[in-house]
């Protein structure tokens, strides 16, 4: 009994003794002088204005690809959209089945081609769906600015010498990366579900990616710019919802512009998403475009450059109060 008491006493004492000795011996083990030298010898720091840009971008991407549930959800979402929306809203069979059997063969194809520029509405929609997921990814990319402000990380980034413009541009870049990856998944799923690939060319696919990059860059800049001063996620959600649906529906993403009323056609013409869709369809499906490819690219490049410029300017202006 006595022995047991002693043993228990020593065992309970042991960790305490250990911790104190560890604390006391530490300065002796790592000699202070050595530590001093370590602290004094600051390395040459990278002072280029772009330093930290990739670190900040990668931080946001890490949160995405290291979170399996989030990654799975954001990748599965476009599949669900394509499967449900793309297959349920089948204009092809709608038109084909409503053609009287007496009509000459090929009538349905002619009608489809004149509406959609291709005989497969699903292919038409798949291209629109790629722009659609880019739009939504960009919109929610802006939200992470709000969270960073709310959880204090923004202040940490701003107290370092990293360029203010990099703080905003990192948000844009992470959103562009995510948008392009998600759009690629849409493309793969669309091919698997029956998108017409007969007019795919290497130049066409590369061109389509260039288009997607430009529209993703422009839209991400837009939403980051709108979020840059906000710390209120509810306002930000309202802004996203207010902009997303008009940008989607007042464009040629889901339906061709020519079946819209004329006022809506004008709106669609001002919508950069229309130009992205127009270019992607020309490049991937070989369909005749509403605009020339040159015009599509100029509009998209201009859109991306102007919005990126504004968001960099605003980040310098507004991130320091």
């Amino acid at each position: 009994m006595v022995e047991e008491n002693i043993r228990s006493a020593t065992t309970t004492n042991q960790p305490e003794i250990k911790s104190t000795t560890a604390q006391e011996t530490r300065p002796a083990v790592e000699t202070p002088r050595e530590q001093e030298r370590e602290f004094r010898a600051a390395p040459q720091m990278n002072t280029s204005p772009l330093h930290g840009l990739w670190a900040l971008t990668n931080r946001d991407l890490k949160k995405w690809y290291k979170n399996p549930i989030l990654l799975f959800m954001s990748l599965i979402q476009p599949v669900v959209w394509l499967g449900l929306f793309g297959k349920a809203l089948n204009f092809s069979s709608f038109i084909t089945s409503s053609i009287p059997p007496t009509a000459p063969p090929g009538t349905a194809d002619t009608i489809l081609k004149s509406f959609f520029g291709t005989t497969s509405y699903f292919s038409f929609l798949s291209c629109g769906m790629m722009a659609f997921v880019i739009l939504f990814t960009a919109a929610f990319g802006g939200m992470s600015v709000v969270w960073d402000r709310r959880f204090g990380f923004m202040n940490k980034a701003l107290s370092t010498p990293v360029a203010r413009g990099s703080v905003a541009m990192a948000k844009v870049l992470q959103s562009v990366c995510r948008a392009l990856i998600t759009a690629s998944i849409v493309l793969l799923v669309a091919i698997a579900l029956g998108m017409v690939t007969s007019s795919f060319t290497i130049q066409g696919v590369l061109g389509a990616y260039a288009v997607m990059f430009l529209i993703a860059f422009g839209l991400s800049s837009l939403f980051v710019m709108l979020a840059i001063r906000s710390s209120d996620w509810q306002t930000q959600m309202a802004i996203i919802n207010l902009l997303n649906l008009p940008l989607l529906f007042a464009s040629n993403a889901l339906f061709p512009v020519k079946i819209m009323p004329s006022w809506l056609q004008t709106v669609a013409k001002l919508n950069p998403v229309s130009y992205a869709n127009d270019a992607i369809r020309q490049l991937l499906l070989g369909s005749p475009g509403q605009f020339s490819l040159g015009l599509d690219f100029s509009v998209l490049a201009g859109f991306a450059a102007v919005l990126a410029g504004i968001s960099i300017y605003l980040s310098w202006k507004l991130l320091t109060k």
Partner: peptide
Amino acid sequence: YENILLCADLYGIP
């Protein structure tokens, strides 16, 4: 560890 390395990157420390 990732947090502190991120800080170092923001200061441009190799």
